[in-house]
Amino acid sequence: MTRSNQKWYDKPISKLIIVSITLTWMFPIFGFLLSSFRPGESIKRTSWWDAVYTGTIWSELSFNNYQEVFRAENLDRSFYNSLAVTIPSTIIPITIAAFAAYAFSFMEFKGKNVLFLFVVGSMIIPLQMSLIPLVQLFKDGIEIAGIPIIPALDLNGTFVATWFAHTGFGLPLATFLLRDFMMGLPKSVIESAKIDGASHFTTFFKLVLPLSIAGIAAFATFQFLWVYNDFLVANVFLGIYKPENLVVTSHMSQIVVGRFGEAWHLRTSGAIISILVPLGVFFGLQRFFIRGLIGGAVKG
C-alpha cells in the first residue's frame, strides 16, 4: 500500500512519458480509421490531416466504404471460413493437450519424464521448418521403405488440413501451459476421487476439467487469436486461389497488396472490419488472455 502512496508518481515527467507512449500507439490507427469513412477520391485528393484542419472532413464521413467492401468482396464468407478454421483449431489441441497434461500431472507411467521432455523440446521447432513436408504429407502420406504408414489423403485445400496443422503447431505450448496449471491444483482432491473409485476418465471430466477452466480459457484465447490472425498456414494449406477458401487474413492480404491499385478506401475499411472480431474477443476475454500469458512467464 505504501508503494502507491509515494509522491513520485505525481511527477509530471512520468505521466508525460505514459501519455506520449499511449498517444504514439494510438496514432497509427487514428488516421487509418478516419480514412476508412472517407470516399476514395477524397482520400487521394486531400490528406486526412489537411481535411481535418480545414474542416472539410466532417461532411465526407459515411459508411459507404464498408458497404462497398462487404458487397463487392464477399468478406462475410471469409469470416465464416475463418471461424471454421479457428474454432476447431482451438478446441482440438486444447482437448488433446488437456488429456496429456492430466497424465503428466496426476498419473504415473513409464517414460513420463522422457515424454514430457519431448513435448517441451518440440517447442523449439519453428513452424516454418515443418511446413513444406507437412504439405507433402497431407497429399502423399508417408511411406517408409515402400510401406505406407499414412496413406495418401489429399487433404490440402480442406479445413481438416488446417486443423491438423494448427494442432501440431499449438500442442507443445498447450500441453506445457496446461500441465503447469494442473500441477497447481490441489492433489488431495484428485486423490480423494481416486479413493472413491472414480476412473481417471471420470476424474478428468468431472473434476479436473472444471477446475482448470481458467487455464483452458487462457490458452483458448491465445490460440484463437493466433489462428484467426494467422496468414502463413492458411495461405499454404487452404490456398488463396479458390475464393471460397479465403480466410479473413488472406483476403485482407489481397486487398492490401494492390489488388485495387490505389483503392485506399477499401483497404482501410476492409482492414478495420477484419480486426473487429479479434478485438472483440480480446477485450471480452482480456483477463483470461493476460493471465495465460503471465502464467507461463512470471514465476516467483
Binding site: 519431448f118 513435448v119 518440440s122 521447432i125 521448418m129 515443418s130 511446413l131 513444406i132 513436408p133 507437412l134 504429407l137 508417408i142 499414412i150 491438423f164 496443422a165 494442432t167 501440431g168 503447431f169 500442442l171 507443445p172
Partner: peptide, 8 residues
C-alpha cells in the same frame, strides 16, 4: 506432435 511437427 510426432506426425505433424517432429517428422516434417
Amino acid at each position: 506432435i510426432l506426425l505433424f511437427l517432429f517428422y516434417p
